[in-house]
Design a protein around this nucleic acid. Structure first.
Length: 935
RNA sequence: GCGGGCGUGGUGAAAUUGGUAGACACGCCAGAUUUAGGAUCUGGUGCCGUAAGGUGUGUGGGUUCGAGUCCCUCCGCCCGCACCA
């Protein structure tokens, strides 16, 4: 029997399992290497060929590093809380734990077929209490900590209360929610109180009052905030879970709503999250996405007095205080709190109408394309801090309430939006740039030279900028300021299938509950209560088990996935999330493989939690993933048939335009080389049972095709199980790697798999005859065979080191082709060859390793080293160019130096023929590479 | 609009530091051998041309003895952000 992959793969799969081949433990003697796949959500649909792509790539590296002598941590587990299981539960009444369990079993079955070297004894599931106990623990620590900006790290709230008790909050420089704090201060000490407060005031507060002030400092805090409410899912969503005004999962509309929610003060870490990007080896595009999302801008916060409103001011953030002389009006967000106080009676109705108009506009409409500038004058004026000139105050929805102070100083000559606004409403555009025509638009060039700008005139903007910040601060109406686009993350979900909070309420004050673990209770339905409380409120007894009530929200999906890579290091620890000695040993993930779609979600949140845990000293590093590779999507190739409209007749591709036809997706299982199996098609679906066909000249029905996303509805899904059944796991592994560079999106083409399968079959022929008898000899290999071997080792090693997975397969193919041609069956060559095959085709590699007399498992076979000596050829073949065009090849002994080669080539009759009497002007000899004669 | 990435045969692609463009495969063509087979083997295959030869890495230019690779221009595609002050 030719290459009996089924027998081979079954045999070794079983062997690995019995021997616990992939079990690893800490070993101080060995250097560690940590290879991780992005946490999979076990969906019910199972895997298609696109899913294992990254898993195969990471497995290849895991095996390669292990053979190189590293102690390799390569775990796998499940991000098993989440919306789909719960949506299914709502529809069917089945407990999400049951469907999740079923999906995991199916997932595991498919993964096991592919020969991955996972240490399954380290499997984790976010939905198991042993795991989420530590997710809750991290939440509790975030609740108990704030961010000390002076120390630039997290610090216990207890140190803050101690400070308050002695000094009040005057000198406290902690990250704080200004709105939450002001609100709390006003509730406690009455309207208009703005702080700071003294130690006496603090000490006089009751516990509830203190708790509400402290809440503003916690890293995990409760606050009323505008959130993304998704009515269809019945929950709030984080900003990264909303795409274009619709929910990422399900595509349901999302509206803004004010709700009391748990929040995460990720903004405290904004700068470190930005800085950290420089220390990690990720793709530039993902880093850029994160930089955008964090959105750091530096400038100044300027204060404008309001005419006829003594003591009232408008704060404005600007990155360009150097253009201050060009500011001639202010624009507030329509929701800005000052609007109602300053609007004049004459403008009152117009302003109210505009506010109503913009409030009714959904987030989606606001984002939808060009609508032109809209806005409304308030009737009020601010005073220019330098000239004292009155500046009209407008409101407009191009100013966002949520960014900066919700107000801008408009510099129409220097900002395009301000320019457009001024144009739209007939406002002046005072020129402040030398030689710039303000009719054409705003000038945003930082090298422009200022004019009409007092002492700044005549200098470049980039020079004035720091001076402007300094001078405006010295004048007392501005402070230097850094602003971030990043918002704190909503951490509550009004859902059942997630981590319950370790929180109960006592007199309305949230309290940690840590003397026993809060477990997810059973409920009678996975729906909100009649009062609109989340599903957990349905759990009678549980819901009031402590204090007045328990926290009814659950944590979002990203909670469990933000730290899972740590748990793999110490998965069964019941005293801590991960023992420090183990995280010190395994350290950062050395290679993280997964999709690029988590740029602003998982990949940002896990960096945030890692930094926090590092601040606590729980772990000793503050970036989770040192290097990351994002695999591209594998696209499907769909097939189409063409039905004559209103009939049951199908026309072949070539003749589809002769009549009016409809293009229909047809199952790719019924199509081979674009030719439709018409009988199978008739049997496919009842309505096609009596289909008629108009064929092409060859008497075949040819289908059309197109590359698109793989999906069930397009009937173009290729599933790994079928391919493993037909070709074996080793073939599938090699083929997925062979398709092209990992990062690139590429179409799947099942036809191509035969080439890779043929390569593995050809490889077995080096080791065994068609009956499976061992034909490996102890003969001394030829120098050609040795050269082939060492060339292959070199290429495979170098390519794996630069993560060029696809070219390795080609190198192995070339090796097999050459060894076959050389009829090489020598152990000295074939044993190391089996070793380098190991990462790609582990089952077959084990088999041929044993044929070649290898000892033990190929998994632990030392990675062979290539010997430069064996690569040397006695003759070198030079392409000879004349004026850059190759004319002939020249064989010379390898030991010749450039001068000698030059002599040989000049003596060659072909050279004189090419020169045709001309004198060579220049001769370039690149040793071992090329000869170029100019003349 | 801004930022990031990318354009190479019929297809997936290779060419790592500027040195024979198209390796390795798929597909296709021809042949062999068998044959119900989606089997196997050999040869060919960028394009134009019978050939010699010419030409060729999105377009146009530049640097260089030599450019897919470096620089400039334009065109096209993909991804991200998008009133972020």
């Amino acid at each position: 029997m030719e290459y009996d992959f089924k027998a081979i793969e079954n045999k070794w799969r079983q062997h690995w399992q019995e021997q616990e081949t992939y079990k690893v433990s800490e070993d101080a003697e060995k250097k560690k290497y940590y290879v991780l796949d992005m946490f999979p959500y076990p969906s019910g649909a199972g895997l298609h060929v696109g899913h294992p792509l990254g898993y195969i790539a990471s497995d290849v590296i895991a095996r390669y590093k292990r053979q190189q002598g590293f102690n390799v941590l390569h775990p796998q587990g499940y991000d098993s809380f989440g919306l789909p299981a719960e949506q299914y539960a709502i529809q069917t009444g089945q407990h999400p734990a049951v469907t999740t369990e079923r999906n995991i079993a199916r997932y595991r079955e498919q993964l096991d077929l592919l020969g991955f070297s996972y240490d399954w004894s380290r499997e984790v599931r976010t939905s198991s209490p042993e795991y989420y106990r530590w997710t809750q623990w991290i939440f509790a620590r975030l609740f108990e900590h704030g961010y000390d900006r002076a120390a630039d790290k997290a610090a216990p709230i207890a140190t803050l209360t101690a400070h308050f008790a002695e000094h009040g909050n005057a000198e406290v420089d902690w990250a704080v929610g200004e709105d939450t704090l002001n609100e709390a201060l006003q509730v406690v000490w009455g309207d208009g109180f703005e702080g700071p407060f003294s130690a006496e005031q603090w000490n006089a507060l009751d516990p509830q009052g203190q708790a509400s002030v402290l809440m503003a400092y916690r890293l995990a805090y409760l606050a009323d905030s505008e959130v993304n409410w998704c009515p269809a899912l019945g929950t709030v969503l984080a900003n990264d879970e909303v795409v274009g005004g619709l929910s990422e999962r399900g595509g349901h509309p999302v509206v803004r709503k004010k709700m009391r929610q748990w929040m995460m003060r990720i903004t405290a870490y904004a700068d470190r999250l930005l800085q950290g990007l420089d220390s990690i080896d990720w793709s530039e595009s993902i880093k850029e996405v994160q930089r955008n999302w964090i959105g750091k801008s530096t400038g100044a916060q300027l204060r404008f007095d309001i005419q006829h409103h003594e003591g009232r001011t408008i704060e404005v953030f600007s990155t360009r205080p150097d253009t201050l002389y060009g500011a001639n009006f202010l624009v507030l967000a329509p929701e800005h709190e000052l609007v109602q106080d300053i609007t004049t009676a004459a403008q009152h109705d117009a302003v109210a109408a505009y506010q109503k108009e913009t409030a009714g506009r959904s987030e989606r409409e606001r984002m939808a394309g060009d609508r032109g500038m809209t806005g409304c004058f308030t009737g009020a004026h601010a005073l220019h801090p330098l000239s004292g000139a009155p500046m009209p105050i407008w409101i407009a929805d191009y100013v966002l309430a949520g960014y900066g102070t919700g107000a801008v100083m408009a510099v129409p000559a220097g900002d395009q939006r301000d320019w457009e606004f001024a144009r739209a409403f007939g406002l002046d555009i005072p020129p402040i740039f030398e030689g710039h025509n303000i009719e054409e638009g705003a000038c945003t060039d930082k090298d422009a030279v200022l004019c009409n700008s007092g002492s700044w005139s005549g200098q470049r903007c980039s020079v004035v900028l720091p001076i402007a910040i300094q001078e405006t601060e010295a004048s007392g109406f501005a402070v230097p300021r850094v602003n971030y686009r990043l918002r704190d993350a909503v951490f509550s979900r009004q859902r059942y299938w997630g981590e319950p909070f370790p929180i109960f309420y006592d007199k309305g004050v949230p309290q940690l509950l840590e003397d026993e673990q809060v477990l997810l209770p059973e409920v009678d339905a996975y729906l909100p209560t009649e009062d609109g409380d989340p599903p957990l409120a349905r759990a009678e007894q549980w819901n009031v088990s402590r204090g007045e009530r328990m926290e009814f929200n659950t944590m979002p999906g990203w909670a469990g996935s933000s730290w899972y890579f740590l748990r793999y290091m110490d998965p069964h620890n019941d005293r801590g999330l991960c023992d420090r000695s183990k995280s010190d040993y395994w350290g950062q993930v050395d290679l993280y493989v997964g999709g690029a779609e988590h740029g602003t979600g998982h990949l940002l949140y896990s960096r945030f939690w890692t930094k926090f845990l590092s601040d606590l000293g729980t772990i000793g590093f503050d970036e989770p993933f040192a290097k990351m590779v994002n695999q591209g999507m594998i696209l499907g190739r769909s097939s189409f048939v063409y039905r004559v409209e209103g009939s049951n007749t199908f026309v072949t591709f070539e003749r589809r335009k002769e009549q009016r036809t409809q293009r229909l997706h047809v199952d790719i299982a019924l199509v081979r080389n674009d030719i439709l199996d018409t009988e199978a098609f008739k049997a496919w679906r009842p309505e096609f049972a009596d289909a008629a066909f108009e064929l092409n000249d060859q008497g075949e029905y040819r289908c059309g095709s197109e590359v698109e996303k793989m999906s069930k509805s397009k009937y173009n899904v290729e599933n790994p199980d079928d391919l493993v059944e037909r070709y074996g796991a080793d073939t599938l592994r090699c083929y997925e790697m062979f398709l092209g560079p990992l990062e690139q999106a590429k179409p799947w083409d099942t036809q191509g798999i035969s080439g890779v399968h043929g390569f593995l079959r050809k490889l077995t022929r080096l080791y065994m005859d068609s009956e499976g008898h061992n034909i490996v000899t102890d003969n001394l290999p030829s120098s050609d065979a040795e050269r082939t071997l060492h060339k292959t080792i070199k290429k495979v090693t170098e390519d794996l080191d630069r993560l060029s997975w696809n070219t390795v397969v080609s190198a192995l193919m070339i090796g097999v082709n050459e060894l076959t041609e050389q009829s090489c069956h020598d152990r000295q060559v074939l044993q190391p060859f089996a070793a380098v095959l190991g990462p790609y085709a582990p089952h077959l590699a084990e088999e041929v390793w044993s044929y070649a007399g290898g000892i033990g498992s190929v998994v632990d076979a030392a990675w062979p080293k290539w010997d430069p000596e064996k690569l040397v050829e006695s003759e070198v073949r030079y392409p000879v160019q004349f004026n850059g065009k190759v004319r002939f090849q020249l064989e010379v002994p390898a030991e010749l130096g450039p001068k000698e080669v030059e002599a040989v080539v000049l003596a060659d009759p072909r050279t004189s023929k090419q020169l045709d009497g001309r004198e060579p002007r220049k001769i370039i000899v690149v040793p071992g590479r090329i000869i170029n004669i100019v003349g």
